[in-house]
């Protein structure tokens, strides 16, 4: 029997025929990266291949000196006879599924994905394959995300109400992806928009490569906090209960995440509001995506992997297995972010 095209080892998802890893979590010579989130695009690879819109973020986060090659969606390259191409994953801007074809066998590594159109990233495209690697962050039937448009309207209404009460609105969203998605749908006629430095830096990359966002002021020492009134402030989740956040008093704060679907999660965070919005697929989206690939083998990574694999097996008769990885899914604190920065050796020594 032929050895499978992809395998899972201590470094990541490995394609032996092409001698390349996909989203490895330990340093390797050659890596294909699905998207620039820090649990997928890690430090220390000899070479990075990724979508053209993911590379500027990776350079910003991992260093200008990393060796890279960029691809457009659908563009094909050959490595040792393995045909490789990237296809829209709809997760964040510049996110891709990796398609690998060798001797008639097709694998798709989807990284993170969603089927909901978010208005700023190229929507997910189902790719036919024999074997499909899927995440399962929200792989339970309790996750059914509301229409994106509804949530954007709720956010604007919340901002408006807070403003009328003389309060600022602090919205916590992942700096890469979610923040731009939220920004692009804010109604600037309500008031001024401000951004945390971490968000602002990513916004600049977005604007340089993709398109304009509503005007927003970066919060730094030159900004007089007293002048910020009834404004919308976009910050990463790491800003929770920091003096930085409190400096916007009086304010209300909200979290933007798929986890907000569960009442307990929202309440434990102590947020005033939880907006159910995710860049991952919910239950129906996962099932739709898996079935659309026509794959007979499904490998389930980060999330409710054993439950979701069992469901695919028992309900659709697919050959589904759970795979242990070090991807973290949708964290509420960007802990993954912190971890990777810390594991990076101090270059000054």
């Amino acid at each position: 029997m032929q050895k499978p095209l992809l395998s899972f080892d201590d470094y990541g998802i490995y394609c032996a025929a092409a001698d390349v890893y996909i989203d490895p979590w330990k340093p390797v010579k050659k890596a294909i990266i699905t998207h620039a989130h820090s649990d997928h695009a890690r430090w220390g690879m000899g070479f990075y291949l990724a979508h053209e819109h993911a590379i500027p973020v990776m350079k910003y986060r991992l260093g200008e000196d990393i060796k890279t090659q960029s691809l457009k969606y659908g563009e094909e390259i050959i490595m040792n006879g393995v045909k490789i191409s990237l296809h829209p994953a709809g997760h964040i801007w510049g996110s891709a599924q990796v398609r690998l074809e060798y001797k008639g066998e097709v694998w798709v590594v989807s990284g993170d994905y969603k089927l909901q159109a978010d208005g700023i990233s190229v929507p997910f495209e189902p790719i036919k394959c024999n074997s499909f690697i899927t995440e399962s962050t929200f792989g339970l039937p309790i996750y059914n995300f509301p229409e994106t448009q509804e949530v954007h309207e709720e956010i604007n209404a919340w901002w408006q109400t807070n403003r009328e009460e003389g309060k600022n609105s602090v919205l916590l969203a992942y700096s890469l992806g979610k923040a731009q998605r939220v920004m692009a749908h804010l109604d600037p006629s309500i008031g001024n928009i401000y951004t945390h430095g971490a968000v602002h830096n990513i916004n600049e990359i977005y604007e340089a490569h993709i398109g304009p966002l509503p005007e927003a002021l970066r919060i730094d020492s030159s900004v007089n906090r007293k002048e910020i009134k009834g404004a919308m402030i976009i910050a990463p989740p790491s800003a929770i209960s920091t003096p930085w956040m409190r400096s916007f008093s009086p304010y209300k704060w909200a979290i933007c995440s798929g986890w907000m679907q569960l009442r307990g999660t929202r309440r434990r965070r102590g947020a005033d509001r939880g907006f159910i919005m995710s860049d991952h697929a919910d239950w129906d989206q996962l099932n739709t995506a898996v079935l659309a690939t026509g794959a007979e083998n499904v490998y389930v990574t980060h999330g409710y992997k054993s439950i979701y694999a069992k469901w695919l097996n028992s309900n659709y008769g697919l050959n589904a297995t759970e795979v242990e990885t070090l991807y973290t899914g949708e964290a509420l604190e960007e802990t993954a972010e912190i971890e990777t920065t810390e594991s990076k050796p101090d270059e000054s020594i």
Binding site: P141, I142, Q261, I307
Partner: peptide, 28 residues
Amino acid sequence: SGLPEWLQAESYHIVGDLAETISLMLPV
């Protein structure tokens, strides 16, 4: 909902609240 019992049980384990679990799994 058409969901099997084991999946209901897993979902309940995650949500931790019976009323909430059922309301999340019922058709909208």
